[in-house]
Structure formats: structure tokens, C-alpha cells
């Protein structure tokens, strides 16, 4: 994992507010990835960027009807296919 499979794909951190997408991969540490999965963030999950903090993050997203804030560092490791 790690490489962008197509030019269209973006890391979560690079997405704009209001943009929607599907998770492609999460390349965080074992613990962080597991925790995201326990909150329902797995590949193929649809998400929407609700807002971003000052200086590119943290990112607040909507996933499975719930709101989730993810630090800038971790958001840079989540690859998304925008739709």
C-alpha cells in the first residue's frame, strides 16, 4: 500500500470541505488503523469532509452518519477516491 493507484485519488488531508469520497486504504500504524476500523472506517466506506481546521487540519468527516475528527498526521495516511 502507500502508492496512489490513480491520479484521481487523494489523501484525506488534501480534500476540500464538502467533498465526498470512498476510502481506498488506511496506512496508519496498527493501533490507529484498528481504531479507525472499530469506528467504521474501512476501505470502501463512503465519507464526506465536513470541515478542516486551520493550517490543513485536523479533518472532521462524516462516516456512517457519525462525525469523526482525525488529526492532520493520520489524515495524511488515509487514501480516498473522490466521487
Amino acid at each position: 500500500m502507500g502508492e496512489k493507484l490513480s491520479d484521481k485519488n487523494k489523501y484525506l488531508i488534501d480534500m476540500k470541505e464538502g467533498e465526498k469520497g470512498t476510502i481506498i486504504s488506511i496506512c496508519g500504524g496498527q493501533v490507529a488503523t484498528k481504531r479507525l476500523m472499530d469506528l467504521g472506517l474501512i476501505p470502501k466506506t463512503r465519507i464526506k469532509i465536513l470541515r478542516k481546521g486551520l493550517f490543513k487540519g485536523p479533518v472532521e468527516i462524516e462516516v456512517r452518519g457519525a462525525k469523526l475528527v482525525i488529526s492532520r498526521g493520520l489524515a495524511a495516511k488515509i487514501l480516498v477516491e473522490p466521487i
Binding site: E60, L68, V69, S71, L74
Partner: peptide, 9 residues
């Protein structure tokens, strides 16, 4: 390692 924020809002 520093822990990243994962927080339900």
C-alpha cells in the same frame, strides 16, 4: 509514538 487524535464528535 505520539498518538493521533481520533475523536467522535
Amino acid at each position: 509514538e505520539p498518538v493521533e487524535l481520533i475523536m467522535s464528535v
